[in-house]
Structure formats: structure tokens, C-alpha cells
Design a protein around this nucleic acid. Sequence first.
DNA 1: AGGTACCGTGGGAGCGCTCCCATCGGTGAT
DNA 2: ATCACCGATGGGAGCGCTCCCACGGTACCT
Lengths: 351, 351
Amino acid sequence: MAGHGARGRSGGRPTLEEVAARAGVGRGTVSRVINGSPRVSDATRAAVEAAVAELGYVPNTAARALAANRTDAIALVVPEPETRFFAEPYFSDMLKGVGAELSETEMQLLLIFAGSDRERQRLAQYLAAHRVDGVLLVSVHADDPLPDMLSQLEIPAVISGPRSAGETLTSVDSDNYGGARSAVEHLLARGRRRIAHITGRMDVYGARRRVDGYRDALLDEGLGVDELLIEQGDFTEEGGRRAMSRLLEHAPDVDAVFAASDVTAAGARQVLREAGRRIPDDVALVGYDDSAIARHMDPPLTSVRQPIEEMGRAMIDLLLADIADRRPSASRDLERRHAVLPTELVVRTSS
Amino acid sequence: MAGHGARGRSGGRPTLEEVAARAGVGRGTVSRVINGSPRVSDATRAAVEAAVAELGYVPNTAARALAANRTDAIALVVPEPETRFFAEPYFSDMLKGVGAELSETEMQLLLIFAGSDRERQRLAQYLAAHRVDGVLLVSVHADDPLPDMLSQLEIPAVISGPRSAGETLTSVDSDNYGGARSAVEHLLARGRRRIAHITGRMDVYGARRRVDGYRDALLDEGLGVDELLIEQGDFTEEGGRRAMSRLLEHAPDVDAVFAASDVTAAGARQVLREAGRRIPDDVALVGYDDSAIARHMDPPLTSVRQPIEEMGRAMIDLLLADIADRRPSASRDLERRHAVLPTELVVRTSS
DNA sequence: AGGTACCGTGGGAGCGCTCCCATCGGTGAT
DNA sequence: ATCACCGATGGGAGCGCTCCCACGGTACCT
């Protein structure tokens, strides 16, 4: 593939020095060209670039990292035990966005698992040793010490779901509030009036925002919020089943359910079926995530799609910006950025 | 960029030299202790370890990589365009196994996307520059030049689905043949006699093995193989739909279908429903992969589970072994290893 | 006793790169 | 014509580590 015409000196990759010799210039000049410094004459630059091409020169990352004290690598920290998170397309999609955006740069992506205590231990060492230039954090719990640790070490980091409205780290999120609103507004438009909500885990900020959206949609319609119609779930199928059972008990006249995740909706669906309620005739159902399950459910589930791949891209963008900003040290006072990306309601036959 | 000694003395990470001074030994000795060399006296080792602990010494990867000409990193190459592969739990599960096994070592995991041409270009450079000690290859097409490139560069590599029976790379696979057999034997045991098979893409070795297993199960039962009962699919839902339509046309008396993937089964299911065939009463259905779709299908789908997480672990084991074997160069003649892990039939109500 | 093996150890010599300073012409100003 | 100045360039000095050779010491041999 790559035209490494010269695997040179008996197998060794060409070095800066060899390129310099070949181009008839000094080592420093080649370095400048490689790193895109403007202080090189056009003629020299051309000569160096030719030599680089001829020799198939590729910079040695290790040497560069050692000399420049940077790594050109960023870490994606994965809290592995969260199987829910892992199995959903969420992870894959985000990775896709991250990968796409990253491929525009010279940065490499390290995957670090921080599930077990030992793994977290290792991660701490990793970070302490500044083995990455920045960190991507996904699916972090409210009480996780990791984010604070990162701020303290002054390692640029971007978190995918902010932990609260006052998130200190740079963050990327989808519009949970708006997504929930659109789901409920859709149900209202369909004439439903007794719309229930099965929440996600309330220690997740996004889940709370969805509740807010649910409430406000009802209030803006002039309907009150019946607390009996709000049941707590935990994003899981089992949680959805339990919540739906309680719902049927406390509010048997429910005519629509907005669940905080597709999996939760699947659990709710099962209980509804067993109770003889038809979907959508008796009870309309809307989920969240627009996962494979939504498409394959019977009936296919209306769901709120999050632009996850775009979120991945945004995370990289923000992180790279943070890393760049950080370099001319002491410009720490840049305003923290928080990106919020729009969601989209995918209407299917369950509503 | 953090100038040289910049954060030096005050707050900088301790170096080997500093540990050596603290322990009252030479640099070389500390290096030996860090790397677990046996040629160090117990007393010295203890002293060094104490110094390491007191100073919180963590080796500088870049320096080590530069001096030792190795990277302590392995790459997981992801052929991104394969969205099918990416979205299925396959990827996540494998990653889980890889991560778990890797966390026992000092190796780090690099994720490299090789979807677009530009990405492949970069990957080639990457490999040419020997920026990783080894490579994990997943979901590789039969005509992909990557594997050969790896052999040529003599970079240790493990492939997750061998491309053929004569795979030259070290490989890990699940028992596609046995998995298919168990599915068909299960259907036979249930009294089915007109068992059809919707295949995967026939350029995938695993798909061919599944066909083999299907055939042999029938032959061993004393039943002939009716070629009309074998329809080609491509692992997708749409492929499943098309194949099932043809099947109903050519072999209307079909009483069971073994599909090469759950998604394919989902497509087949839809067509069966539309044709008024009940599952499992009229036609039993068995899928492959045991994905989320299988659990959530109506009726829940019997499926062949592959031990994907274990496959991930096995890949790492084999790769690390290859890397280790490689170091004392010229021991290239080690026999290529191929691990085949058993599958498990998960019986649900669709059969 | 002298010789031969080691063993544990110290430390020089790089690995390939970035930084930075010194150098060298060329330029416009005086 | 002279000088201060500036952009372009060369190359020394590390970055922190591993490799390996050399060294003194001890144990064992003849």
C-alpha cells in the first residue's frame, strides 16, 4: 500500500536525519516542514517534501512524544460495567462519530476500560502519567470521582452526558428536554390526554431533563401534571415492567406511555399486552433512543432519536479545541463550552 | 507546550534516575527491577521498590518505546462501513472480552478505523511505522488486502473470523459448523422434516461452515438435502425477506427455517406472518447470534449464541503469545494457531 | 594459590525527535 | 557605504528509557 520505496537501512524506517541529508538541509528544517511551521522558504519546503515522499518517511511517535512532552493520543474512557450502555447502539454510534472526526487528525484513540477497581487504579496512573492529551468521558455516574480528578490534573476532558446543569467539564449532550417534549406533544396531537411517563434513573441528569420536558409539554397544553402518571424506572426492561404494572394499578385510565428508553418501553409493552391493552388502540407507546429494538418491536415503536454520531464528532471537536487552547498555558479562563444537539422523533405505529 | 524541564523539579513526574538516586543504586538496576529482571538481589530489589512507591514513579511510555523500539500497544482495526457488524452486540461484547483480558497486562488498546480509503491509507502508514506491537482484525472480507499486508510486514496479527480453512493468520472463531448442526438437530428433534436454511453471505467463511453444518445434520439423520430448501441471504433483514419469499414459492411445504443471523430471521418472520404462517405452529424459526432482537422478537427467537466475549479474550491471548514469540527473532516457524470456541443453542418459543 | 566463572551492578551510548540558540545573508534605514 | 535587524537555517542539547559492556566481588575449580 504505502509507497515506502525505501525501507532504507536494512529494514529501519527513515529518520528525520536521513530525510534532511536527502533534501540537503538540516534536521531542524525538516522538523519545521513536518510540523507545518511557516518559517521555511517555499523552495526548501518543496525539497523536503520531495525527500519525505521518496523515502516514505513517517515520524516516530515515541520520539516525538518524548521530546515534545505530548502524546497525540486521547483516551475514551468506558465505564464497562454499564452493560446497558455498551450493548445499545449508543456506544457504537458514538464511536463512529469519534472515529470519523479523529481520522481528520493525527491523533490516535485509546480505549480505556474503567470498570473494575483495578482498572480504575490503572486509569488513575495513566492519567497521572499524562499518557494522553485529553479524555473523552461517557456515561458517567453522578458520584463518579473521575471528572473531578481530571479537572484537578488539568487534563482536558469532555463528558458526553453532563452530570448536572452546572457541569464543570466541557460537555456534549442531546436535547433531552426537547426530545421528551416532542414525544409528549406528539401524543397530545394524537388526542391522548392521560399520558404517563416512565422515567430513567433519576441520578442521571438526562433522565431528569426528560421529566422536565414531559411536564412542560403537558403544562403548556393547559393540562395539569398528574403525579400518579409518573413512575420511576431505571432504563431497564425489568424496570419498565414494574413501572407499567404500578401505572395500571394507580392510573388504569392511562391512554399513552412515554418511556425513557426503548428497552423500558419493551418492558411496558409486555405488561400492557398481558393486561389485554392493545397498542396503540388502547395505549400509545413512545420510547427513547430509537434503537434496533424499536424497529423490531411489534408494533414498531415510535421513539426519540438522538444524534449520537454527531455527538461523538462534537466531543472530539471540543476536546481538540480544549487541548489546543491549553497549550499556550495560562489561558485557562476560556469559557467552558456545552454543546446540546437536537433530537428527532421517529414516528412508527405504536402511537 | 510544556517546555522542557518546565514542570520539572516541582511537580514533574519522577524519572528513573531520581528513583535510582533515592534508592542509592544505579539507573540500570532500577530498570531491571521495573522490568522484572531476575538478576537483581532481593535486598536491592526491595530498596528500589520502596523508592518507586515513595516517589510514585510511573515509567514514561514514550521514552521506553523509543529506547526499546516497541510500543506496548496493540490495535483493534475496525472496518467501519460494516454497520451491521458495528451495531450488533458483537462488537461491544468482543470489546468487553478484549478489554478484560488486556487489563491484566500493561498493553494499551488502540482503536483504528479502516473504513474510508483515507483511513486505510493512514492505517497502512501506521503499520509501516510499526506503531503497534500487534493487530486484532475483525470482520474482514475475503478479498481484503489487509491480512496479507500484515504478514508481509511481519506484524503479529489475530483475525476473528478466518477467511478460509487455510487461514494463514492466527485466528479465533466460534464453531459455526457445530452451531448450525445444533440448530438443525434441535429442529429435527422437534419433529420438523422440511427444514430450510437461509444462508449468510457466501464469501464469509463462517457462513459457508454454517451451510456445511446444516447439510451434515440432515445427512446424519438420514434425510437428503433438498437444494430447494437452501436460499442465499446476506445476513441482512432485507435479504431474509427476499429469501423467505423465494422459499415459500419454491418449497411451500417448509416447516422450519434456520437463518444465518437473527436479523435475517426477523426478515423471514415478517414474510411468514404476511403469508399467514404461524410461528412456531406452522413454521419453526431459528436464528443465529442471540442478539437483542432475538429476545425481543415476537415470538422470542431460538438462536445460536456465540461466546463472543470469550473470543475477544482468546484473541488477546493468542496475539500476546505471538508478540512474545516474535521477540527472540527468527523463531518464525511456530505453528499457526487457530482457536475454535463452542456455541450454545438458546431455545425460545419460536421453535 | 591461582585461575575461571559468574553475579550483581553502574553507567555510557544511543533511540528519533523538538527546542532553541547561534549563525548567516540580505534588507532597508541612516 | 554602514549598521541594526530580520527571516531562514543548522545543529547542540536534551527528553527518559533500554541495552549492553565493563567492573569488582565471590564461589568454585584445578
